[in-house]
Amino acid sequence: MKIPAFLRLTIRNVVVNTDMGTMIFMLGLPTLYLFVMGFMFQGIVPTGLQIKQNGLDIPYTTFLAPGIIALQSFTAGNIGGGMLWSDRRWGMFEQIMVGPFRRFEYLLGIICVSIFFAIVGSLIMLAFALAIPVSFNYNLIGVLSFLVTIVMGTILFSSLFLIISGIAKSMQAYQTITIVLFFLLDFASTSFYNITSSTPVWLVYIADINPLTYISNILRDSFIYGVNYQTFTSMGIIFAGMVVLFAISMRVYRNIRSGI
């Protein structure tokens, strides 16, 4: 059976990335967040920390779980987009480009592996969340909006890391940018906590332009509060961000010369 070029590249990307380090980064860290942060914060308040949002009081662990699932789109985007950088760094980009592949197939391989990791990672996180347990409401629209958002969010973050991979000139530069983004996007979003009237304004601004905020909010709507008008607005914002970043990444990618 003939496997299309982009699928062969996707399989290769999966094999190359299923090492212990990547798995810990993709699954271990969010699992720790979910269990350690979830229970530790929950334990701060003797009666159990409750998050009040959209007129509902929910346990912190239930609030946190969709945020952790949302992180999978960021982590998978980082792994996928970062592949371009490591392939350039270790000579495989050039090697693949002199093989039976076109540039867009290489790119498609990266996007596909990111989506694959994001969906698998999200489902694993969902399973862990259910083990806590958390109380989610399931319905078809909620599941669909979860899947669509994870895919869009992953393409958005893959594009972001593709851009960084395309412009970073050294390992130090790439790693520094990645670490700063990791902390900024992860923690200045609503993945771990909600925005309240006490949140400093500058942090609210950062959270408002942070895609992870919208992805976390959409997933909370999908699993807890119910899909509503605001959910679709957030999806529209993610879609727009995805299109813009993807277009920029295309431009950067087209101009990439092999090697670093």
């Binding site: 190359v16 090492d19 490591s86 270790w90 000579g91 050039e94 090697g259």
Partner: peptide
């Protein structure tokens, strides 16, 4: 093609 520079997968 065998390039002059190293090229390998992390595997």
């Amino acid at each position: 093609v065998v390039q002059q520079e190293e090229s390998y997968d992390f595997a």
